[in-house]
Design a protein around this nucleic acid. Structure first.
Length: 113
DNA sequence: ATTCTGACTTGGG
DNA sequence: CCCCAAGCCAGAA
């Protein structure tokens, strides 16, 4: 298909894909970018999430970096909040603050259109 | 147009 | 496993 609508697609894709991540699982920025058909847009995914309103229903906390860690934020307390939300969903953290991706990484079998 | 910055990722050492 | 350089890309100044 043509690229004429590509400018807004990433944001829309993030809002469509992130809610598919089940509680108890996490996904990386790179994965979301790839599923959004923009494999090199991991940073952009982070930007979209950063722009979500605080009252959003989108489970932004389920997106972490490829190292299995919560990405550092400029906003104070944001990273701590993310960890708390994930722990409430059953995610466990190693002493170094990382998550065992072999156990918690989401492996979608198919992405709904 | 240019530079800087950031919720990224990967490859090398 | 840690650290760093590059590559990456959009938004702001």
């Amino acid at each position: 298909m043509h690229q004429s609508t590509a400018s807004t697609s990433l944001r829309d894709a993030v809002c469509r894909l992130v809610p598919l991540i089940p509680a108890g699982y996490v996904c990386t920025y790179g994965q979301i970018a790839a599923y959004a058909d923009s494999p090199k847009a991991a940073r952009q995914v982070g930007m979209v999430l950063a722009g979500l309103p605080e009252a959003t229903l989108i489970p932004w906390q389920r997106v972490i970096n490829a190292q299995g860690a919560i990405s550092p934020r400029s906003k104070p307390g944001a990273a701590e909040m993310q960890r708390i939300l994930l722990e409430e969903e059953g995610i466990s953290f190693r002493s170094d603050g990382t998550i065992d991706l072999r156990k918690h990484l989401w492996h979608p079998e198919s992405i709904p259109q």
